[in-house]
Write a protein that binds this DNA or RNA. Structure first.
Lengths: 341, 341
DNA sequence: CTGAAAGCGCTTACAG
DNA sequence: CTGAAAGCGCTTACAG
């Protein structure tokens, strides 16, 4: 089955020169005469020579492989990020190894370990939502360049790429206020979720700035914010004495659950209750009414993350500074908040 | 930055034994005494020894990396497949390198090449829809185990994992006939699409079996079957003299486009026109009415594909037979065809 | 039960 | 301009 494979040595024998010369010729070493270089390259092409990347990587302590660890590959947002990481890495000559944690902390640790063992040149990582102990990450960071994106942690001193969640939420909530809403509920995750907390901060600031009192009954937290939870929490909200007049959900999925429940109870959207989601997923334009939501440019995140990482890989000296880069988001206004006033 | 890394040699020096012995101890070679083995393993643990996989792979001509090439990572169906591939590979001790072709034939060829160059142990591949020349694939197949899934080609003599598209379509169309539909339109891709053709065959067989004449006007083909195309083709259909009473789309996306257009023209679904999609995407339960569709178990495809590949990698002798494995699908009946009769 | 040595395919400092 | 040689970290056939 396996074909005879062309090596430097074989070509050297055929041309009756040394492997050193062949190697140098293929790498465009200036010392080698044009003639020899040409000769070697021609033969290489003829024999479909492919350098054995493992031998090369092994020799040079560089594999040109980047490890990517994400919680869940099924998320559209994450797929968007991955897509751009693949594209950019390709361009720069890197290959991507992907691992999924499914939010399992133990798996996350194992994967980090395996990545290092596979000799990746660097790691891009989005934390599992259950990660509290960052020691394994610090350990990895100590060995290879590592960048966190989307789900990050302030406890890890490395470059981090996130969206401007606080500001995004502020804008979304102000939009609701601008269309006349005053009792704005929020569906969020529990405190340990970094992203959720940022969004929550923006929510609070928007209310404060606009002199709207905070009503604890309108702040609902859950561990896993899903479609079903969106429905359940919404049922809870509309059974309140004083109903909300808007619902802001930190995910589109839960927002869609909210819309479904509002439909069920014949509550008019957006007149009685407006709904805003977060992430501009595909579903947000399929649901009726179309969902107002915050667009998070996954491609930008992926692009910046991988390019920073490659920079850190290729200039190991310089990356002492661990900056946090915030990517701008956009509020996309659709029918679920479209009120003519 | 980079920490001192523990190697066999270093441990050998510390224990004052040979690297051969250290290597064998770690690999549980039966020759080595229990005592030595224990001693070595303890030290290895203490120093966080991680074998250099590149040196190992390089030595053993095995990298434990599987290359996966897919057209588009954003597709939910493909993500489902990838998720299971990652999971199963992990269990079996393989790492996954992913590349995306975006249906670009030239990129597809390059990626195949790079995969080989990276020394993957085998390749899992779903063809781009524009692939006609399979020579690059035959070339790869000649070097390493390779399995095609979902988008396959009869021209490549290798194991192929597909869904039972013909049967699935047959069942879907019979379902439409059973609820009393007689003028069933189909939205499909042009002839070169293997999957689309299979589905079309099932459509034709269902009509024939039920003595329904084929009406060419109800058979619409397009190159890229998208939401927009779903809308456009549906507009076309409802402007026919004799309208269809059902639309069968080979993708959910186009089916959703169809539904949107039917809404626009106030056509009742399913009473006037029923709609069936294909793939049971997330959107299919978000759209109103919920879409009847064919569920393709991506996880099954991923699971079988990767396990067959690993089998072929590990028993290179046996895989002469290139079988085609069909995965059963399920028709999920929802509101878009729910008629009480 | 253990070790010395060769070798996987490549690169590169050194020598000429 | 070119070559001989060492070495990256590991495994394994051979020898004892």
């Amino acid at each position: 089955m396996k074909k005879e494979v062309t090596t430097l040595k074989k070509m050297a024998q055929l041309l009756d020169i040394s492997t050193s010369t062949v190697s140098r010729a293929l790498n465009n070493h200036p010392d080698i005469s044009e003639e020899t270089t040409k000769k070697v390259k021609n033969l290489a092409k003829k024999l479909h020579y492919m350098p054995n990347i493992f031998a090369k990587g092994f020799r040079q302590h560089k594999t040109n492989i980047i490890g990517v660890i994400v919680p869940n590959i099924l998320s559209y947002f994450i797929s968007t990020i991955l897509k751009e990481i693949l594209l950019q890495a390709e361009i720069k000559g890197y290959r991507i190894i992907i691992s999924e944690t499914n939010n399992d902390v133990k798996k996350e640790k194992e994967m980090l370990h395996t990545m290092l063992q596979f000799g990746v040149d660097g790691i891009l990582m989005s934390l599992s939502k259950n990660t509290v102990d960052v020691d394994p990450i610090l350990y990895a960071l100590n060995q290879k360049p590592l960048i966190l994106f989307d789900k990050v942690s302030a406890k890890v001193p490395c470059t981090q790429i996130i969206i401007n969640g606080e500001e995004a939420a502020f804008n979304a909530v102000e939009h609701l206020i601008n269309i006349g809403k005053k009792r704005i509920a929020i569906l969020k995750e529990f405190e340990q979720s970094y992203n959720s907390e940022k969004i929550f901060q923006g929510y609070l600031r928007a209310l404060k700035t606009n002199n709207i009192a905070i009503d604890e009954k309108l702040i609902l937290s859950t561990h896993d914010i899903s479609l079903k939870k969106g429905r359940r929490l919404t049922s809870q909200l509309i059974s309140l004495q004083e109903k909300p007049d808007a619902i802001f959900s930190i995910t589109d999925t839960a927002a869609i659950g909210a819309i479904q429940t509002l439909h069920k109870f014949n509550i008019k959207i957006p007149e009685e209750i407006a709904v805003v989601g977060f992430s501009n997923s595909l579903n947000s334009t399929i649901i009726q009414p179309k969902l107002t939501t915050v667009d998070q440019p996954g491609n930008r995140i992926g692009e910046i993350a991988v390019n920073y990482l490659i920079k850190e890989i290729e200039n190991p000296k310089e990356y002492l500074a661990s900056k946090t880069i915030e990517i701008k988001t956009n509020l996309i206004i659709r029918e679920s908040t479209l009120i003519s006033i």
